[in-house]
Design a protein around this nucleic acid. Structure first.
Length: 874
RNA sequence: GCCGGGAUGGCGGAACUGGUAGACGCGCCGGACUCAAAAUCCGGUUCUGGCGACAGAGUGUGGGUUCGAUUCCCUCUCCCGGCACCA
């Protein structure tokens, strides 16, 4: 073998072998146990960044490990190729999104291949290919037939200057990112998917997802937000009837119907019909409604806004007391949740309390807590006011505990036809219409005579024209008559094609199915899906914990109910990778768009609070930029680190090893390349250890481990098998690749210290090196491919099974126990493995150092923890 | 604001079920090799006191439970992810 480790040579050879042997081609084989290992596909933003390297290395380690464990592994890859960045790039450079996207895919594919991932590239898909997105369209039409896809209005961010809809990301501090104009809310017709119909199943099925992280299940459960409560109707008083033109009632949803007698005001959203009607005759109120209309649609903005409200002057009647209650319009009430109206109980709801205090609204105490003592609710607010307890001041319903009060009040409401128990979900239906070009066309045609007509199946796909270049002022599809001018499929008269495209979450909600049957032009899915699915291991960033994963679960259930799948859940096991963070630097000019600078280009001057951040531009001028903290590596923040230079300098194995060694996968990680050297050095040490063992020969001559070994040899063997045991557990169960690598480092350190050149000694070293090479092969597959051959093996590393632990090598006759006095470490004792507690206790007390600390005193207590420690309490 | 997560040496991290805090690596310091440098190898490296044996302190803050807490409970601070049109 070569004395020097040359990553480029080694990596080329290993990749050539895999390529030629077709090592990663996955074939359906019902006789073997399949393992579908999937990493979330990337958005083709241009170049890989370290987050990708981390994600795909984790996936590759698990795929290769599963293969060694004897599974038939599928690891595919594709491209989440529709989306906003392509349109932004088009605006910046005038390149068509299609061209930009495909160029990026070509470049990033090369980068992925250079990293040596065990991917079956024959199954590659890109969501912008008509062969892929035709099935989005086809399934959309099936959902429409089933009543799962439907049309209604929805609220969007509207830039009044560019006359265009903005994504939330494009709204900065309530203003359009390009124009700086104050963004308005606008209601437009949109298509929705009825995900709320699946709310109960999406929630209850979380219990069965044993292979999912608890935190993800918790986040999804909170997102779905099931709450048991009641809907209550407050009949309009005469003033409200007059304004609304008819009798009626204001309906609210509440989880605290036990506090119904504490209602002192009502609050409705600015878009609520009652607000609109009242606003029409009250200019001041109308101004407030208009004010609410300005600003972004984002929940985070709404929630942090100053709570404001204006009275309508209209009243509703309490369902039991008939007392008139004034209706307010409030900016914190959301039209999209519940009924767009709430009953205000300031005594027992913190938000209502804050609002009432601010507006001088009366507070009526109607609950006495059974936990905390208070007579009457008074400022300031304390959490005790929100506790459940016994009703007071509630007429015939006074003196009841929470559940009894709810039951009694709901029963009484029901007999009067003014309310009932109800379950409410926080989850909202999924709006999929996007007024954007670079996405999957929605396959509908609007005909003046026939209404909304689906594109016939045989005419699918509706192909997106690929030569358009967006300019920021609305959807180019709307300006392209060749696209939207069509004949109505129903009556043949001229009609208009829908120009909205689908949310890109649609594309990613089923791509994992298509990998199983990417070549099928006749059907969306086929029997191969039944073989490969569910995904046995899914790996992706924690940022997808809710939306993508929830939508994919929903999509799977819909397809099941349309008899296209026999699958309840798509992902059996989930590993959520922590984010790779980097510093964010930006500059906001007086006019125009904020620009972001790559941390590599920013020079940090000074210390502490006096730090300044300077960028030298191409023309030599210097610009002071601002530091916006840490954030995920992304194209939009320009803070990605391209792995290319790392791979060129040290090789793919070092890049992979470094990412695995530097932190456990679920933890977020602040980027730093300190330590890359160490990863490289370790690989070189491993190479050198094998080289020294093999000598100048082509490869090692292997010798069996003799049955008689001396103490040092036994010790090395024990460490070898302890390491193997740890590797198997760390990779297979704990997924802590960093500690797996560390354990091999320790083994290699022991090999380096081991100087026994006898035949038995060499056999022990051979075994240790084989475990090191095999154990690391999922992480550093190229160099271990070469080293495996050097160790004298005919077959390729990739085809080897995972090694087995020799239990007999683990046996020990003595243990070292720690001895504490009053919980402080004072000494150690060596005891036979089979020593009983009494013996251990006696040995600990007899220990000289322990005697010194215990002195003449009689120990109060001696705690013996088997195999661990003794604690003497005096 | 709400939901979820995190904080351990100069740095990344380890300690898996409440039982030796700091494995492993980086960096740094000292030494060997070298004309020299790089590379490599050997030793040291939480802090404070001490020549040393050793002693004391120490896991974001403050409190609690326990023979024993990085680990469990409560409080607060800061950081990260998500909040439905970034993906």
């Amino acid at each position: 073998m070569e004395e020097r480790y040359e990553p480029a040579v080694v990596e080329k050879a290993a990749q050539a072998h895999w390529q030629q042997a077709g090592s990663f081609k996955a074939k359906e084989d019902p006789a073997s146990s399949k393992f579908y290992c999937l990493s979330m596909f990337p958005y083709p933003s241009g170049r890989l960044h370290m987050g990708h390297v981390r994600n795909y290395t984790i996936g590759d380690v698990l795929a290769r490990f599963a293969r060694m464990q004897g599974h038939n592994v599928l690891q595919p890859m594709g491209w989440d190729a529709f989306g906003l960045p392509a349109e932004n790039a088009a605006m910046a450079n005038g390149v068509a999104p299609a061209r930009w996207t495909r160029d990026n895919i070509a470049y990033m594919k090369k980068q992925l291949q250079a990293l040596g991932f065990a991917i079956d590239w024959d199954r590659e898909i890109a969501t912008c290919d008509p062969d892929y997105y035709r099935w989005n369209q086809w399934l959309f039409l099936r959902m429409r037939e089933a009543g799962i896809a439907y049309k209604r209005t929805g609220v969007v961010n509207w830039d009044p200057v560019d006359q265009t809809v903005l994504a939330n990301e494009q709204v900065i501090d309530g203003r359009g990112w390009r124009t700086g104009a104050v963004v308005e809310k606008r209601e437009i017709p949109m298509y929705y998917l009825h995900i709320t119909r699946y709310a109960e199943e999406l929630l209850s099925a979380l219990d069965g997802l044993d292979g999912w992280p608890e935190r993800v299940k918790l986040m999804q459960a909170n997102w779905i937000g099931r709450s048991e409560g009641a809907e209550v109707s407050f009949p309009y008083a005469s003033d409200a009837c007059q304004v609304m033109g008819a009798e009626g009632a204001l309906k609210v949803f509440t989880t605290r119907v036990d506090t119904l007698f504490g209602v002192t005001f009502m609050a409705v959203a600015a878009e609520h019909p009652l607000a609109l009607a009242a606003g029409a005759r009250d200019p001041k109120l109308q101004d407030f409604i208009d004010e609410c209309r300005r600003g972004s649609t984002m929940e985070a903005d709404v929630a942090t806004m100053e709570k404001k409200g204006v009275p309508t002057g209209l009243h509703v009647r309490h369902p039991f007391t008939q007392k008139p209650i004034e209706v307010w319009v409030a900016n914190y009430v959301l039209m999209g949740y519940g009924e767009g109206a709430v009953m205000g109980v300031p005594a027992h709801d913190e938000r209502d309390f804050a609002f009432a205090t601010q507006q001088g609204i009366e507070i009526t105490t109607v609950v006495r807590s059974t936990v905390s003592a208070y007579e009457k609710v008074e400022a300031p607010w304390t959490d005790a006011y929100g506790e459940r307890g016994v009703t007071i001041n509630s007429g015939e319903f006074s003196g009841l505990e929470f559940q009894a009060a709810v039951d009694a009040i709901c029963a009484a409401l029901e007999t009067r036809g003014l309310g009932r128990k109800r379950i409410q979900y926080r989850l909202r239906d999924w709006g999929i219409s996007r007024q954007r070009y670079w996405g999957c066309p929605i396959p509908l045609i609007h005909c003046e005579h026939c209404g909304e007509v689906p594109v016939p199946d045989e005419q699918l796909p509706v192909v997106l024209p690929e030569d358009l270049v967006p300019d920021g002022s609305g959807n180019p599809l709307g300006k392209t008559p060749q696209f939207w001018q069509v004949d109505c499929p129903s009556c043949g008269r001229s009609a208009r094609r829908e120009t909205d495209t689908m949310d890109t979450f649609v594309d990613s909600s089923w791509y994992f199915l298509r990998y199983a049957c990417a070549d099928n032009e006749q059907a969306m899915v086929d029997e191969r899906v039944a073989y490969w699915l569910p995904v046995d291991q899914y790996i992706g960033g924690i940022e997808h914990a809710i939306l993508h994963l929830l939508y994919s679960r929903f999509w799977t259930k819909v397809m099941r109910d349309l008899n296209l799948l026999s699958l309840d859940e798509p992902f059996a096991n989930l590993l959520t990778q922590g984010m790779v963070l980097n510093h964010i630097y930006s500059h906001q000019p007086a006019e125009g768009r904020r620009t972001y600078f790559n941390p590599l280009d920013v020079e940090v001057q000074g210390e502490g609070d006096a730090q300044r951040y300077i960028v030298t531009r191409e023309d030599g001028s210097r610009l002071e930029v601002q530091h916006d903290g840490l954030g995920t590596m992304s194209k939009s923040k320009n803070n990605g680190v391209d792995p290319q230079s790392l791979v060129e300098k040290y090789g793919a194995d070092t890049a992979r090893l470094f990412m695995m060694f530097t932190a456990p996968p679920e933890q977020s990680l602040e980027w730093s390349d300190e330590g890359v050297q160490g990863a490289f050095r370790f690989i070189r040490r491993l190479w050198r250890a094998v080289y020294e063992h093999v000598g100048a020969e082509e490869s090692a001559s292997r010798v069996a481990i003799p049955s008689e070994l001396n103490a040092a040899q036994k010790q090395l063997r024990r460490l070898t098998h302890q390491t193997l045991q740890k590797l198997t557990d760390d990779i297979g169960r704990r997924r802590t690749f960093n500690t797996a690598v560390a354990s091999v480092m320790e083994l290699l350190n022991a090999v380096a210290r081991f100087e026994d050149r006898s035949e038995a000694g060499r056999a022990c070293v051979q075994e240790a090196l084989e475990v090191a090479v095999q154990g690391l092969s999922p992480m550093i597959p190229h160099v271990t491919h070469a080293l495996w051959q050097a160790l004298g093996h005919e077959g390729a590393m990739i085809d080897q099974p995972w090694p087995k632990v020799d239990e007999s090598a683990l046996a020990q006759d003595e243990l070292t126990l720690v001895v504490q006095v009053n919980g402080k470490l004072r000494s150690q004792i060596t005891v036979p493995v089979d020593a009983d507690d009494a013996t251990i206790r006696a040995m600990a007390l007899a220990n000289e150092t322990i005697q010194k600390f215990v002195g003449a005193a009689t120990p109060k207590k001696v705690i013996v923890v088997p195999r661990k420690l003794v604690n003497v309490v005096v």
